[in-house]
């Protein structure tokens, strides 16, 4: 049902329909390393493979299961995140937010 909703609203910026909770979780847990700009170590690392989409905010293909595996197991310099800091339910919301990208804004003012 969610997928069809996304499809139906395809003409609108996708960030409008992403769960607000997912965005807040992104800001809380991910933004410091994955926002736009090479001062963010995750973005700097991913620029090797995804020069045009180095920030997770700009990625248009981050499937939910992929996000879940990386968050729970880590990758390169990124250590895993534990259920005590990010519950399975929160991880699902976060992954859906990233899956619904790209996103225009980071959510946290500097």
């Amino acid at each position: 049902m969610r997928a069809s909703l996304v499809w139906a609203l395809g003409a609108f910026p996708v960030s409008l329909i992403a769960a607000p909770e997912g965005q807040a979780l992104y800001v809380q847990h991910c933004g410091a390393c994955h926002d736009r700009g090479p001062e963010h170590p995750g973005t700097a690392r991913l620029a090797d493979r995804w020069p045009q989409q180095a920030s997770l905010l700009d990625r248009d293909a981050l499937p939910v299961p992929f996000v879940r595996v990386i968050v729970r197991h880590g990758l390169n310099l990124m250590p895993p995140f534990r259920p005590g800091e990010l519950s399975d339910k929160e991880l699902q919301a976060l992954a859906e937010y990233l899956d619904a990208g790209p996103h225009a804004k980071t959510g946290e003012p500097k």
Binding site: A32, C33, P38, E39, H40, P41, A44, D48, N76, L77
Partner: peptide, 17 residues
């Protein structure tokens, strides 16, 4: 003001720890 930039040190080499 907290940030994570210093973790970029590990990006000096590929797959750095």
């Amino acid at each position: 003001v907290p940030n994570m930039t210093e973790y970029n040190l590990m990006n000096w080499i590929p797959n750095g720890g």
